[in-house]
Design a protein around this nucleic acid. Structure first.
Lengths: 199, 199
DNA sequence: AAGAGATCGAACCGATCGGTACGAACAGCG
DNA sequence: CGCTGTTCGTACCGATCGGTTCGATCTCTT
């Protein structure tokens, strides 16, 4: 019985295939909602292969979340940059992108936050902390260019809006959430800028 | 060998004991982080007793989360009412209460949201949705009394701040989160009230 | 042609999972 | 006293968990 290994036998390809399946399945089912055997079946890969690439389930989770953090960070930054030079436009564009995400079928909140909350110890929490640092960096740049009174504080307030929006859109319903949160973020930006020019 | 059943043999007491332990342990370890056997050990109760009271682990989770939702809802409403008649004071008091919570040792975010995110199907999501409805009710009352332009929208924006604050305080650090989010909520309230009197 | 490395499928491991069953010990009530 | 219902401790169930091992098979490189 010949064994089907796919077209090529490329370790990097195999790794990517596992990562892609894990990204979907761990998001849909939760970290504890699927076993390694199930992951392997869906990825069309044997357990030995998975363990050689990632060492453990924890290692696979870490790699999956780190890749996702990279992707999301890049996505939001590009959305901001595509909106032109105005800080308010950039902030609006970020929340427009998020609003589209909430409405996607299968949306279940932020995968990284969800993972961090499921396992109170482990890699997910570190990845989540770093993920938020990256968001904060982007938001701080926008806040500073907008002339905010305290760019760091404003950025953190908007970060809270971002994370809260994902939770509320997931658990309480998408309707209007994105738009409402976008307006809240812009209102905070205006208030902070006004305070800076008045003070 | 005499069996130790505790001082009294009161079903209601037994039930409360299980609920109290489950509230702590499920929050600390996560829904999948502890088995029914472990719960029973920590509660000083046999598996048969637990299953007679709650039917299943899912039933125990539901009862635990519903009790918690009741408690949190009462707690926030009392905090608001204790702050006097001014809506802004009441809103500030709500976030002061939350800020104190974030700083408590063992804080791990909102137990109900965490549970809902861990099991994408099941009782936790229903409890979470209802939990947010209750928050929204309180916030809408405050927003309406503050003369907000759109009380429902403002309440939802502040709800997003509440949920996001718990996530950020848990995963990104407590420092300043409570105070910053409190100020953000009050800023949104002021902006909405100003818009209402101007329009 | 031959070796090196990647992969598969399946068997296997000990541990744990949620849930059930049972006999014995206990309390409260008539 | 004896009846009813609660609880305990323990054993047990089938299933699944994360992880390891092994021989066979396949591709690529030299």
């Amino acid at each position: 019985m010949p064994v089907d290994k796919g077209v090529t036998l490329d370790p990097a390809r195999t790794r990517e295939q596992i990562l892609q399946v894990a990204t979907e399945v761990l998001y849909e089912q939760g970290l504890d909602g699927v076993g390694v055997a199930g992951l392997c079946t869906r990825a069309g890969v044997s357990k030995e292969t998975l363990y050689r690439h990632f060492g453990s389930k924890e290692g696979l989770v870490r790699a999956t979340l780190e890749a996702r953090s990279d992707r999301v960070t890049r996505w939001l930054r590009e959305a901001a940059e595509a909106a032109g030079p105005e800080p308010a436009d950039q902030l609006g564009a970020v929340f427009d992108a998020l609003t589209g995400w909430y409405a996607e079928p299968g949306f279940r909140g932020c995968a990284i936050v969800n993972a961090a909350v499921q396992h109170h110890e482990g890699a997910a929490r570190q990845v989540a902390a770093r993920h938020m640092d990256r968001h904060l960096e982007l938001l701080s740049e926008i806040a500073a260019r907008a002339g905010a009174a305290e760019p760091g504080v404003l950025a953190r307030q908007i970060l809270v809006l971002m994370e809260g929006a994902a939770v509320v859109a997931d658990l309480h319903g998408v309707d209007g959430t994105g738009r409402q949160v976008r307006e809240a973020a812009l209102a905070l930006l205006r208030a902070s800028a006004a305070r800076a020019s008045a003070g």
